[in-house]
């Protein structure tokens, strides 16, 4: 790339973008709970939230007020500092990860003529950075469970450890094949590779499915939400949490869902390139929304798995599949 082509990055711009990410994603995460309840209700032939506002739309505000005004309890024997730090880790890492993903194409603000690059921090190993940050986010549940001196919490954090060790390999290996094809670790390069309209999912369907499965495990979505499995371990790592501390775990989880949606749509589904008559920014919002909907659909459709089933699935099925996929990709790339 030419040096003059590089977008100018100013400190003010980065700060504005960081605040925007924080505000927008928190709002979407809150609204996501309403959408989730409505869609789950629709799929299970219930009504969902209905009483607060039209179609229950103001349920979000009611929940917010409840969360903010709830009594903040720290159990007697808990390790207070770690107990307080754990939710912050989950929320913070989720937002840091979002700092390195591009969402919209670069654009110029009209009238003031300011060129805005789409990404808050263009790390040239973006994919690895985002995955690393999301992996660090699992320290939240781990520490929360260990700090609260509650058996359910401890079980929850033990499950966090095994879940982390299971899915992490699959996520890395499933993304390795697209990385080999594109030859870069930068999200922007992934996007420009697919600018001719052929999405990477056409070349790498197996990797796409593997990544989605691992992504659901990463965000504790329902087939794999072992950490707070209500039927088995009360609430797992959040058993002793209430009020805003619990809310931070919640926001972190939803932010991670959106991050997984963004990664999947940029790496596999053509990113923010224009498609037919639709401009790029509409396309990427549609893709992220669809992937978010898919997560809710999966939640409505599948029961929980047991921890040993998760390990069996990750280590004995998904990991060999991912390795075979990488090997075949390598052979095909050598042959062509």
């Amino acid at each position: 790339m030419d040096a003059t082509m590089l977008p100018e990055v100013t400190a003010v711009g980065v700060i504005i973008k960081a605040i925007l990410i924080l505000a927008v994603i928190s709002a979407i995460a809150g609204f996501g709970t309403y959408i989730e309840r409505k869609i789950l209700a629709f799929m299970q032939r219930r009504l969902g939230p209905q009483h607060v506002g039209p179609y229950g739309l103001l349920q979000l505000i009611a929940d917010g007020i409840k969360l903010f005004t709830k009594e903040d309890i720290i159990p007697q024997n808990a390790n207070r500092i770690i107990f307080a730090v754990a939710p912050v880790i989950t929320a913070a890492t989720a937002f840091i990860a979002l700092g390195a993903v591009p969402v919209f194409p670069d654009f110029t603000i009209p009238f003031v003529d300011v060129y805005v690059p789409s990404i808050a921090s263009d790390v040239n190993v973006g994919i690895l950075f985002v995955l690393g940050m999301m992996a660090a986010g699992l320290y939240g549940p781990l520490l929360a469970g260990m700090a609260q001196s509650n058996k359910w919490g401890l079980l929850g954090s033990a499950r966090t450890a095994i879940q982390f060790l299971s899915y992490e390999v699959v996520t890395g290996l499933s993304l390795l094949a697209p990385i080999m094809i594109v030859g870069s670790l930068s999200f922007v390069d992934f996007n420009s590779y697919q600018s001719n309209g052929t999405w990477l999912v056409l070349y790498q369907p197996i990797a796409f499915i593997l990544f989605l499965i691992a992504g659901y495990a990463e965000t504790n979505r329902t087939p794999f939400d072992l950490l707070e499995h209500e039927a088995e371990i009360v609430s797992g790592y959040v058993t002793e949490y209430s009020g805003m501390r619990w809310g931070m775990f919640f926001i972190g989880e939803y932010a991670n869902m959106i991050t997984i949606g963004i990664i999947a749509s940029i790496v596999f589904l053509g990113g923010y390139n224009d498609w037919w008559i639709f401009p790029g920014w509409i396309m990427i919002i549609a893709k992220i929304a669809f992937l978010f909907f898919l997560m809710l659909w999966v939640r409505a459709a599948w029961p929980h798995v047991r921890p040993d089933q998760l390990m069996w699935l990750c280590w004995k099925v998904l990991m060999p599949l991912a390795v075979i996929n990488v090997v075949i990709t390598g052979i095909v790339m050598m042959a062509i």
């Binding site: 790390v123 190993v125 950075f129 690393g132 992996a135 450890a161 982390f164 060790l165 992490e168």
Partner: peptide, 17 residues
């Protein structure tokens, strides 16, 4: 950047164990 991210991923996983 690459080494930084590797440090992050490797040690986060190792300390988790």
């Amino acid at each position: 950047d690459f080494l930084g991210v590797v440090q992050l991923i490797v040690y986060v996983g190792a300390v988790m164990a």
